[in-house]
Design a protein around this nucleic acid. Structure first.
Lengths: 165, 165
DNA sequence: AAATTGTTTGGATAGATACCAAATATAAGA
DNA sequence: TCTTATATTTGGTATCTATCCAAACAATTT
């Protein structure tokens, strides 16, 4: 088994540090590191806060508990969550920070869509479908171009994760 | 082997008719019927026009020829292209119409992004990443909200495929 | 302690995408 | 035409994501 990769954030919130054994890598987060479903997991976990049970997640995301166990295992391996078997999962610091970005991204993109006549519901649904493929830099630019709105149609928008302020 | 599904367009271009044996289904096209890579294939084929060789496609899309042969097989099975073995592929009528929608979608989305300060190149790249997950109805609304622009940053925008005119 | 409920593991499947090596077809050169 | 070169396809395999089911296992409740 290779040394565990453990991502963590640096002072600048758009940078992610990763340790591999005793070597440290610094990398920009692109916003494209997680698959659509994993993005859903992280957003859900953040909204719940605290220790979340497998069944909570599986029922909320409409999948079998065994599916969520597996996915949570992946997220744990990547350092986004801590998994206490038979107890539940909790976001790590990195996971929570990353989830904040994910939620902001969702909120910014859905807000953007309402500017083109989509209803809040449609905008939200639409954004959920494609958001995982929108880069952080694009989101930053959209956000800044909209004047860093603090309220979206799907919730509040924070700006800790923004490049440009 | 089940009877071949053959999609074709009706008079209203946002509707797709599908025959299965002697039964005919009418279905709205959602814009979500093709995977990202298949969208690339169709857009490329449309831009080339005429019979396109497997190697053209594979070199352009940066994949092994065997990969493009397989993907083209899928597209042929779904009725978007005609494949003449060892000769090349050509879009069917349905494929060409669908590809027009795909190209419009790309152009509308990338144009939209430039309104938020993204460069043409970035907008194009960004749109390419997420466009497959944006529904036709959303594109229609964005298009109409932008006043049905005829020129985008990635090429001309037609409106045959638009719901609202 | 036994039964119920919640969780995990193992196995299997499916779709998307990809490559390689081998077989086959077409085209070009001699 | 025969041979060689090039293009294409086939078959096999792989990875990643996502899923489910059944069985094993842990925790909780009665």
């Amino acid at each position: 088994m290779p040394p565990q990769i453990t991502p963590f954030f640096g002072m600048e919130s758009q940078t992610l540090y990763t340790s591999y054994g005793n070597v440290i890598f610094m990398q920009e987060i692109t916003g494209l590191e997680l698959s659509p479903k994993k993005v859903e997991y992280l957003k859900f976990l953040f909204k719940k806060g605290e220790l979340v049970r497998t069944t909570d997640i599986s029922s909320q995301l409409g999948v079998d508990p065994s599916t969520s166990t597996k996915t949570l295992g992946d997220l744990a391996e990547s350092g986004y969550v801590d998994h206490i078997p038979y107890r539940g999962v909790r976001l790590t610091d990195v996971g929570a920070r990353y989830a904040e970005f994910l939620i902001n991204r969702h909120n910014i993109l859905s807000l953007m869509l309402t500017h083109y006549g989509l209803s809040s519901e449609d905008a939200c649904e639409e954004a959920s479908r494609f958001e995982s493929f929108v880069s952080r830099s694009a989101v930053d630019r959209i956000c800044s171009s909209m004047g860093h709105p603090t309220v979206g149609v799907c919730g509040k928008i924070g700006h800790v994760s923004c490049d440009i302020s």
